[in-house]
Simulated scan of single mutants.
Amino acid sequence: MSAPIRVLVCDDQVLVRTGLVTIIDAQPDLEVVGECADGQAAVDLARRLRPDVVVMDVRMPVLDGIDATRLLAGAGLPDPVKVLVVTTFNLDEYVYQALRAGASGFLLKDAPPAQLPHGIRTVAMGAALLAPEVTRELLGMYAARVRPAEDTGRDIPLSPRELEVLRLLADGRSNSEIAAILRISQETVKTFVSRILTKLELRDRVQAVVYAYRHGLVT
Rank of each mutant, 00 (worst) to 15 (best):
V86Y: 00
A98D: 01
V32L: 08
L91E: 14
A212C: 04
L130P: 05
G140L: 04
E150Q: 13
C36Q: 07
V16I: 15
R100A: 14
L99H: 06
R70P: 02
D151T: 07
E201H: 14
I120P: 06
A3C: 12
S2T: 09
Q186G: 11
G119C: 03
R100P: 11
R100H: 15
V165C: 09
L166H: 04
D204F: 05
R145I: 10
P78H: 05
E93C: 12
C36A: 08
V206K: 02
E187M: 07
E137N: 14
L8K: 03
L116Y: 07
R6N: 11
G126D: 05
R59N: 14
V81E: 05
R50V: 07
V7E: 02
S104Y: 11
P117I: 06
A73M: 05
D92L: 13
R205H: 06
G19H: 00
A75N: 09
A212R: 03
L91H: 15
S2K: 04
R183N: 15
I196V: 03
A180M: 12
A127R: 00
A46V: 00
L182W: 08
A127Q: 09
A98F: 05
L8I: 01
H118V: 11
A3F: 00
V85I: 12
D29K: 01
L139C: 13
V83I: 10
R147M: 10
R50E: 14
I23W: 01
R147W: 11
V81Q: 11
D110N: 10
A143Q: 12
E137R: 15
S185G: 15
S185K: 13
K109M: 12
D92E: 15
G153H: 04
V193F: 07
A127I: 00
R203P: 06
R47M: 12
L15H: 10
A103Q: 02
T22V: 09
F192I: 00
L166R: 02
E187L: 07
G126N: 02
R6V: 01
M125Y: 13
R161V: 11
D25P: 01
L163G: 15
A131L: 11
A103W: 02
S104M: 12
E150I: 13
A37R: 11
A41R: 15
L45I: 04
H215P: 00
T122A: 04
T191L: 14
E93T: 02
G216S: 08
D155G: 08
L107G: 08
D151E: 15
I156M: 07
V83W: 01
D44Y: 05
R50M: 12
C10Y: 06
R183P: 09
R136N: 08
A75D: 11
T122Q: 07
Y96R: 12
P28H: 03
L15N: 12
D57Y: 00
G126C: 02
R173G: 06
